[in-house]
């Protein structure tokens, strides 16, 4: 865990899309799935997302996302249908109504909504470097200080993680007997010293910031740049257009 990110190095389609456009697409997708649309609309979006995922990050990553959400989907499918009692009966056991057509559609809608949100989020972070994501936030008028804090968090995570691992290592090196491994008993002192090591870095991190000029009133420049605005605007329009088409095709109202 020395680099805290799920970013996956690749060259697929989504890697060429501007980070800002991807963030906008994610937000629209999350709203879209809650709009009053037909089941086929959500199904279309899900299929679109899965194919996008195949094409951009490959089969292995796609199945990994699927695996992570499968238990949840199963839970939704098992529990939800039985609440919907009205409508066309689909399954009747000994005169008891078990499942209706509406119930089935309802539960599938719920699962595919969850499915779409998950895929959209995962794809964003699998194909966008943290730097680009933070730059995108900055261009959406998130204050610099917030962005810096987030980037400092990412800078600090590996240090604390390493410290934690080395502290647990040093605990194992102090055992007197090879058979006794008191993991739980050791957890508390390990956490304590990991915290002490972390807290110790606070003043020095503040020193580092100021010694690099943090606090100056001059206008900051950026070493990194996202792609040009032309690209971003073109991509954003394309995304909005796509969702408009989906909405108009599948709207219930």
């Amino acid at each position: 865990m020395s680099s805290a990110t799920i970013f996956f190095e690749g060259k697929g389609f989504l890697y060429r899309v501007d980070a800002r456009a991807k963030v906008i697409a994610l937000l629209i997708a999350c709203v879209f799935v809650f709009l009053p649309i037909y089941f086929s609309g959500i199904l279309t979006l899900s299929i679109l997302l899965v194919s996008l995922s195949f094409y951009s990050v490959g089969i292995k990553n796609t199945t990994n996302i699927l695996k992570a959400i499968l238990p949840m989907i199963i839970l939704v499918i098992i529990f939800s249908p039985f609440y919907e009692r009205s409508g066309t009966p689909l399954l009747i056991y000994k005169d008891n109504l078990i499942l209706t057509y509406e119930g089935l559609i309802h539960s599938l809608t719920l699962s595919l909504r969850f499915f779409s949100i998950t895929f959209a989020c995962s794809l964003l972070f699998l194909t966008t470097k943290m730097n680009a994501f933070i730059l995108a936030l900055q261009s959406f008028f998130v204050p610099y200080k917030t962005c810096l804090t987030i980037s400092l968090v990412f800078r600090t995570i590996p240090t604390i993680f390493d410290a934690f691992n080395q502290i647990s290592d040093s605990h194992s090196l102090r055992r007197s007997n090879q058979l006794k491994k008191k993991r739980l008993k050791n957890l508390f002192p390990t956490l304590t010293s990991a915290l002490v090591v972390s807290l110790k870095t606070i003043p020095s991190l503040a020193m580092a910031l100021e010694s690099r000029g943090y606090g100056l009133k001059t206008k900051r420049t950026n070493y990194h740049m996202l792609s040009s605005y032309k690209y971003f605007i073109f991509q954003t329009i394309a995304i909005i257009f796509l969702f408009m088409v989906l909405l108009l095709t599948f709207k219930k109202f």
Partner: peptide, 28 residues
């Protein structure tokens, strides 16, 4: 390690020049 504030080697060198507002080409 206690002086580092970014997540990549190149950003680390660039950071002070970004704060004092040097133009991008010069920083590169």
């Amino acid at each position: 390690m206690e002086m580092f504030i970014t997540t990549t080697v190149e950003d680390e060198v660039a950071f002070p020049f970004e704060t004092i507002g040097i133009e991008r080409n010069k920083i590169i």
